[in-house]
């Protein structure tokens, strides 16, 4: 029972990792990775790429009850493999081709035959690019961190 629940949680975590990478990969990174996977099993498009809106929510005071902040454009797509496995994607922005590719990658990523290859071709390189970009961002921000020092007060100085 617990074993099955653990396995479920693990599968969800694996899929979330891949979907996060897909959401931050460029169109080119996604297309190149899919092409590098070689021959692919047949897939049917159960939801052709569609652009729509998602209402983004904030929280009052940062941690209070939710409120509707404003919308964002989102593109979604879904595919199904012959085995019945479905893949889907939701990406910020208007990116039909990327959404279609990401949905295919999500479907293939659920197959043990493809996942290691996807990790190697997409998850690792995009993950590496993102971590080095984020490191630079953080270093840039850290360079503007204020070091306060207290000046010697006038009356404390020797006459």
């Amino acid at each position: 029972m617990t074993g099955a629940a653990d396995q479920m949680a693990n599968e969800v975590a694996q899929r979330t990792t891949l979907l996060r990478i897909c959401s931050e990969a460029t169109d080119l990174e996604l297309a190149n990775a899919l092409q590098a996977l070689g021959d692919l099993p047949a897939m049917t498009e159960i939801r052709p790429p569609e652009v729509g809106l998602t209402m983004l929510r904030g929280r009052m005071g940062g941690d209070g009850p939710p409120f509707n902040l404003g919308e964002a454009t989102v593109t979604r797509a879904a595919v199904r493999l012959g085995t019945g496995v479905t893949g889907m994607s939701y990406l910020l922005g208007r990116r039909p081709e990327a959404a279609r590719t990401a949905a295919r990658i999500d479907a293939l990523g659920q197959l043990s035959a493809y996942r290691p290859l996807i990790d190697e071709l997409l998850v690792q390189p995009v993950g590496n690019r993102l971590s080095s970009e984020r490191l630079i961002e953080r270093a840039e921000a850290a360079s503007t961190k204020v070091d306060f020092f207290t000046l010697v007060r006038g009356e404390d100085q020797p006459p």
């Binding site: 569609e50 652009v51 929280r59 964002a72 989102v74």
Partner: peptide, 16 residues
């Protein structure tokens, strides 16, 4: 455009 739903509340305490 059609509406696809609502996001999870944004977590600003985890902001980069």
């Amino acid at each position: 455009l059609p509406r696809f739903g609502y996001s999870q509340p944004l977590d600003t305490s985890n902001m980069a």
